[in-house]
Design a protein around this nucleic acid. Structure first.
Length: 814
RNA sequence: GCGGCGGUGGCGGAACUGGCAUACGCGAUGGACUCAAAAUCCAUUGCCCGCAAGGGCUUGUGGGUUCGAAUCCCACCCGCCGCACCA
């Protein structure tokens, strides 16, 4: 028997057992009546080695997986790697090392550490998204989307990152900068591949009601989709004989429109001034606006600018001619790129009107100064005067519709997903460009289109793949004439939008998955990851599942039934980063204290959904606790089990059942791992005190002590699986993961005697002991008997007595 | 500006349904063991007054509801995150 807690030896031993016996592998077939559960942590991007965020994520997921297994469920808990992406490619540009090789090294390191952490993974289902056996199916899905018109190629103004030399999706532009590298993005007019996520806007919005997700994530998605209801209204420009539709959420304010504004990118701006004396000034303004970065244009507190076009449009509700302006506060990407401006009831229009001395006309009698956006009776609104604006809202739209000048309309902030990237290390888009046939999909049987090796990874504004001439030149699959392959690769978010489906049927080499298999496992019962993916990954994956459901490939609408978002691990109060020099690695602590300590500490540190600051002193505390547990277990193992417990249940036995109850609810319902671990610490502390008593020859029994320590091992197992298994084996000779999760005996959860709090006027004056089931009168009598309480009550009138059975007595005195 | 989250001892945090504020851990102090140290074990530890018995105060601030508020309501302050000229 070892003299001290040796996590290295214990952890190596159990990891060997789990690997040899393939303990965590799970079959797709299941006996009837066995409940399934799919527990999944977000796919890691393998770069260098895992960091604290990974440790936290997998510690949470593993605890849940273990808990569910021991509650009798068949648990799918797989692992893989999101292995395509820019960091590996940038590394290749710097060093010349093939991204495949550096990625393989990172994956090996990740896997080595995951095994060292003792995470219970079914490794038979492992894959990397960069492996042809995986991306073959990414391409296959892309072709299915293409067939349905959900993937299309179009020229559009797109976000271009000059540093990464590639286009970006809207979601990857944050504050006008590239989400990856922080470089301000530029607008470029380019032909690119898009996925038609906007077709699903309403369903993506509505189905948020069907998932159990944190409210803030739901809110973020809702905002991102940005659905607004209103109307499309057509304004006519008689001079050119052109109609300009606008979108508004406030058709009730149409009578207050005093001017009209177009975005600088609006295709008709120049046409409206061509050959007029305003042309030079307008061209100048447009050129300046278009050149400005998204960041400059979106800057807050920026003065409104604009130029009149010297033209007018007709307001369809009152026939007024109102002037047209071009101004950069109107965005081409939203609505129709033109707006009606109602300065009385819109702050932005008001600001503009003020700068340009334009009339402001109140049309709603809302409270407060102008501009006001509230409700009220209509004024200056012709035959609608006097009606409430909300009522007039629909009536005006109806009237416009009958005149052919408008209709109800819905607008979204969500844009289609731009998926092509001019980079090397990604999944090739399986399409061929043929001069005769146009875009021709690569036939399914020719998949995968494998990524060729190239000499030079450096991006030059086009994909490095374009230089692989032998690869690019192919016969057209349709006509057989010479054609060229698409050289762009896919956004890596495409890879991660369906990986959770592949895990269900990872070894299938004749299909992406078998629908029956996927339908049996999906949706993911518990998904765990960082909140930074609240929009990107989670929205894309939801879109994929809905599209795949429409195609008939899956039989459900949402991928992730329950989502848990973990908080960040910080260091000295700030985010860990190389530039701050405050990065610490899980490896440092696993080497020094063992995986069980690192895992328990990261969960003990605070509520898992909140940010938490890593402290080296704190780790020591948890390590001490685990060592205490091991020490008392090895001590108890050497004692004879002793006779059965005495007649009355010992306090330690009650404590053990209390801990079972506490850990069960904290783990199963609340995700409160910190308090669950605290409960096990309390149990172990009590076991130490109880052992003192046993040694001193009191009423304590060795059997109760053994039971308590075994219970501590069993309860700590989801958090510290190696030590949990070790302690449980020492106490019982059995394997803890083969044992059902313990159940608390309700009879032992209620104490025989309770402590009553006695208050006088709400202030605590004493505590008295009372039998558990004592009547209210009995409790009041016992409370009055307390000398301290009696002293307080002496000489005053008790006006009222409040008795909370089993808890407290409060005397209200005058 | 809009939306969300949060503010409790020296520190991380607990208090789940309005009923003992400060569980558990860290740190600190004292003691045992030791030649000594480490490790370990035991005890104390919200603040103030007091020799003590005891008393008073305390959950960002100010009000309110209640026998009773960290918890509910109103007003406000501070911090973090997301969105932001989206018509």
């Amino acid at each position: 028997m070892a003299e001290r807690y040796d996590p290295k030896a214990i952890e190596a031993r159990w990891q060997q057992v789990w690997a040899d016996e393939r303990t965590w592998e799970v079959a797709n077939e299941t006996a009837p009546g066995v409940e399934r559960s799919y527990v999944l942590e977000m796919l890691p991007y393998p770069s260098g080695e895992p960091h604290m965020g990974h440790l936290k994520c997998y510690s949470i997921g593993d605890a849940i997986a273990h808990f569910r297994r021991r509650r009798g469920m068949r648990v799918l808990h797989p692992m893989g790697y999101d292995a395509f992406g820019l960091p590996a490619e940038n590394h290749a540009i710097k060093t010349g090392q093939h991204p495949r090789d550096s990625t393989a090294e990172s994956i090996a390191e990740f896997k080595r550490q995951f095994l060292e952490w003792g995470i219970s993974i079914d490794w038979t289902r492992e894959f990397g998204t960069h492996e042809p056996r995986y991306y073959r199916w990414t391409q296959w899905i892309f072709l299915r989307l293409l067939e349905r018109g959900l993937a299309y190629r179009q020229e559009a103004a797109v976000n271009w990152c000059p540093k990464d030399q590639t286009v970006l999706a809207n979601e990857q532009v944050v504050d006008g900068r590239c989400e990856r590298c922080g470089t301000p993005v530029e607008a470029r007019q380019l032909e690119q591949w898009f996925l038609k996520i906007t077709d699903y806007a309403d369903r993506l919005l509505d189905d948020l009601a069907t998932v159990e997700w944190p409210e803030h994530v739901v809110t973020m998605q809702r905002n991102w989709i940005g659905r607004s209801e209103g109307a499309q209204v057509v304004f006519r420009c008689d001079a050119l004989g052109a109609d300009y539709p606008i979108f508004t959420t406030r058709p009730d304010t149409l009578f207050g429109a005093t001017f009209f504004v177009m975005a600088p990118e609006h295709p008709d701006v120049i046409r409206l001034v061509e050959g007029t004396e305003r042309e030079a000034e307008v061209r100048d303004y447009v050129n300046r606006a278009v050149r400005e970065s998204a960041e400059e244009r979106g800057a807050e507190a920026r003065e409104k600018t604009g130029v009149p076009l010297g033209r007018t449009v007709t307001n369809p509700v009152n026939g007024e001619e109102i002037p047209i302006f071009v101004a950069d506060y109107v965005l081409m990407e939203y609505g129709t790129g033109a707006i009606m401006a109602v300065p009385a009831h819109d702050e932005r229009d008001f600001e503009f009107a003020r700068r340009f001395g334009l009339p402001v006309r109140r049309v709603i009698d809302c409270e407060g100064e102008l501009p006001c956006t509230g409700d009220g009776a209509m004024v200056n609104g012709g035959r609608f005067d006097g009606r409430h604006n909300r009522e007039a809202f629909a009536q005006i739209v109806e009237w416009l519709e009958s005149e052919g000048r408008g209709r109800p309309a819905v607008n979204y902030k969500l844009r289609d997903w731009l998926v092509s990237r001019q980079r090397y290390w990604g999944c090739p888009i399986p399409v061929v460009h043929c001069d005769r046939c146009g875009l021709v999909p690569v036939p399914d049987e020719d998949l995968p289109v494998e990524l060729p090796d190239v000499e030079d990874y450096a991006p030059r504004g086009r994909s490095p793949l374009a230089a692989a001439e032998d690869w690019v030149r192919v016969p057209c699959p349709r006509c057989g004439e010479e054609a060229r392959r698409e050289t762009d690769t896919m956004d890596t978010f495409v890879d991660s939008s369906w990986y959770f489906l592949r895990y269900c049927d990872a070894l299938n080499d004749t299909a992406a998955w078998d629908r029956a298999v996927v339908d049996a496992w999906m949706p993911v019962d518990q998904y765990i990851g960082g909140v930074e993916h609240a929009i990107l990954h989670l929205m894309y994956a939801r879109f994929f599942v809905k599209a795949l459901a429409d195609i008939g490939l899956v039989g459900f609408q949402e991928p992730f039934a329950r989502l848990f978002t973990q908080g960040m691990i910080t260091r000295e109060g700030s985010k860990m980063s190389k530039s701050r020099g405050n990065v610490i690695s899980p490896r440092d602590y696993v080497d020094r204290y063992g995986a069980d300590t690192a895992r328990c500490y990261i969960l003990y540190i605070g509520p898992p959904d909140q940010d938490a600051d890593w402290s080296d002193e704190g780790v020591g505390g948890i390590h001490r606790f685990l060592a205490r547990l091991w020490r008392i277990a090895s001590d108890v193992a050497e004692r004879a089990p002793g006779a059965a417990a005495g007649a009355a249940p010992s306090p330690l036995l009650r404590k053990a059942h209390w801990a079972i109850d506490k850990v069960t609810s904290d783990l199963g319902e609340r995700f409160a791992f910190n308090t669950a671990i605290a409960a096990v610490i309390e149990l172990v502390n009590d076991a130490y005190r109880y052992r003192e008593e046993l040694v001193a020859g009191g009423e304590a029994t060795a059997a109760d002590l053994r039971f308590a320590v075994a219970t501590a091992g069993s309860l700590i197992f989801p958090f510290a699986p190696h030590l949990g298994a070790e302690v449980y084996e020492l106490m019982t000779g059995r394997r803890v993961w083969e044992e059902p999760w313990p159940e608390a005996d309700p009879a032992l959860l209620v104490a025989e005697e309770v402590e009553l709090v006695v208050q006088v006027n709400g202030k605590l004056r004493d505590r008295v002991r009372a039998p558990a089931g004592a009547a209210e009168e009995e409790q009041e009598r016992l409370a009055r008997e307390s000398p301290r309480v009696a002293a307080q009550l002496d000489g005053s009138d008790v006006v009222k007595t409040v008795v909370v059975p089993g808890k407290l007595v409060n005397f209200v005195v005058r």
